[in-house]
Write a protein that binds this DNA or RNA. Structure first.
Lengths: 192, 192
DNA sequence: AATTATCTCCCTGAAAAACAGGATATTTAA
DNA sequence: TTAAATATCCTGTTTTTCAGGGAGATAATT
């Protein structure tokens, strides 16, 4: 619905040509193999692979394709990651038609577009850039599923003490002191 | 952007007349004072008052106006509340144009429209049975803020053992076995 | 070649949570 | 007016988490 909405919105513009759309990461990559548009509007919330990861992959394979991130919420952590992964802009879904067109016109020139609302959210960032390692992310997800260190250790074929270490590092990185706050902030930052 | 998208999408239909749009609850109510459409598409995530509350208010004042809930996520708790408050349908924003039109055509006849995806999410709900007491909700929120039983006890002027009891009851009601899962499911169900 | 990051494993001891199985007032609602 | 729900408190034991260290192996960067 959102896709078709944006499409019929953009098709009213003569300067903009709609080349197609994809509903998930794989079909997006398949599409880009066939043809490369100037700009890709990319939703953050995709089924399976996140828009953030897809952004990185697309930029690595097709550096000339400009990417504009799309999301409902003004989530600073997302915006930042998206930009780090090579996006040229970020637009909220509640943005106006004019704003979207402005974003496209800015990005096509090779410039960065961030709306006032978005760039303000970027400044209000006390939630530092929490970067987790692959293992830490793994452990965090298993903790969130209610597993104890012992169970996690068996699952990952590592020692309980190692799991404990990862857990301690997670607490340190999130700057929290127990599991409750860990899970809460992690969900709030949409990391899990 | 989403509004304008849906608008230009619906304006292609001869059977549908677009009467206007509102960006928040107040301007929606002001709009309805002037004129009442057959159907209102209502986003759940509004600035300030939630779509759920607005839905109730609109239905009380204008019972003949049918409301279709709109949201990005398939959040069972939201859908249920929305329907309880008098909505006639619920559509996800990733729904197709056809689905939206089907929803409109169903609802205008006075029937209820729920897409397969949505009604499935409604069935997968063992969650509606979870009713917390005032005290339990209080304790749950303090747990989510990272407090230990001891701190909570001091804060609420009750014994640590009492807090422990509430905690045990919370685990039982949510059918989970530790804090991590408690916080996770509670946040997922939007209880905290 | 040296630093850094990541993953791995270990220790001690303390704190907290989970589990089991009670009891007793006080509201609330049928 | 009872029965049910709620809130309060207790004694234990076991399990898990947290705090604060150290330390080796490997791989990636500088």
């Amino acid at each position: 619905m959102v896709i078709e909405g944006i499409r019929s919105l953009l098709q009213q513009e003569q300067d903009v040509e709609w080349m197609g759309h994809a509903m998930n990461a794989d079909s997006c990559l398949a599409f880009l193999k066939q043809q490369q548009p100037d700009i890709v509007l990319m939703d953050i919330n995709l089924p399976g692979k996140s828009g953030i990861d897809l952004c990185k992959e697309v930029k690595e394979k097709y550096p000339s394709v400009f990417i504009i991130g799309l999301s409902t919420f003004n989530q600073q952590s997302f915006i930042q990651k998206m930009m780090e992964n090579g996006a040229s802009g970020y637009v909220l879904k509640n943005a106006s038609r004019e704003e979207l067109l402005e974003a496209i016109n800015t990005v096509i020139k090779g410039k960065i577009y961030l709306s006032d609302e978005v760039s303000q959210a970027m400044k209000h960032t006390h939630s530092e850039n929490i970067i987790l390692t692959r293992r830490e992310k793994e452990v965090l997800e298993l903790i969130a599923e209610g597993m104890t260190n012992n169970v996690i250790a068996q699952k990952l074929f590592i020692s309980v003490t190692t799991v404990d270490t990862h857990r301690k590092n997670l607490l340190a990185k999130f700057d929290v002191k127990n599991t409750a706050l860990l899970i809460r902030t992690a969900t709030q930052l949409q990391i899990i």
